[in-house]
Design a protein around this nucleic acid. Structure first.
Lengths: 126, 126
DNA sequence: GCCACCTATAACCTCCTGGTTCTATAACCA
DNA sequence: TGGTTATAGAACCAGGAGGTTATAGGTGGC
């Protein structure tokens, strides 16, 4: 998938509150489809569709545990999206020189899938 | 507009390469609709529609200069989107303690529309 | 007043999205 | 073998997105 298309898919995936909530849930650890569907007033196939969107964007990967297909957060696209947004940081950040350093670091980091630390997402809102 | 809906609108607006290119162009300064439309193999009404999407998301504001309606980048939603993404930074950043400091700063900054510095966006891609 | 220019609106098309229900598949359990 | 659970797929629907062309509206120039 081209760079641009990946960004398209990532931002499109993030544009839905259900999907953002799913990502927030997954940040706390792996979960099955049923577990992910539980909080929503929505059918299971609807959740499966959302997961397929997230998977297409590379935001989620699936494992196999008997009948279960546990979902895992893959944050690399989130990093790419953040990197894109960072191009506009000068518009809203005062002390942006430290940000420059940071972003340079950020763009050289490439260790997706390793060394998971507890994150602290805060749901669908800001 | 609710917080969640704003994020919805922002991410949805960013999910289109034409719109990302428009934002990149606007980062270099104000531009009229005709100017914005020029680089695209697309009709003027199509661009007007894209601008309406960007405007609904708060990413663009319009002025008035005779018949022209110059567009200006409004980066606050970009900041909000970045702040949301930052919740997941622990998944892809090594030295994230500096990021903590940074993001705290970031969230307390609130000076949209003031003190514009030259930015350096890099187009639609990464 | 009239024309040219810039932009927005209207009407229309196609395709995608997000939801539904029903059903199929696959794995475990008894 | 048959039943139960977990998930995916198919068919369907309504609505929205992104594009088109044609046209209307506001503004300045002559």
């Amino acid at each position: 998938m081209a760079d641009t298309e990946l960004l398209d898919a990532t931002f499109a995936a993030l544009a839905d509150p259900t999907r953002r909530a799913i990502l927030a849930r997954l940040a706390a650890g792996e979960a099955t489809v049923t577990e992910l569907a539980a909080p929503f007033a929505m059918s299971q196939p609807a959740i499966s569709k959302h997961l397929r969107v997230l998977e297409r964007a590379g935001l989620v990967s699936r494992g196999r545990d008997a009948q279960r297909r546990p979902c895992r957060l893959e944050a690399r696209p989130l990093r790419d999206a953040t990197a894109w947004l960072a191009n506009y940081r000068d518009y809203w950040v005062e002390s942006y020189q430290r940000l420059d350093v940071l972003l340079d670091e950020l763009q050289s980091v490439d260790h997706t899938g390793t060394e998971r630390r507890p994150a602290r997402p805060n749901g669908t809102g800001g």
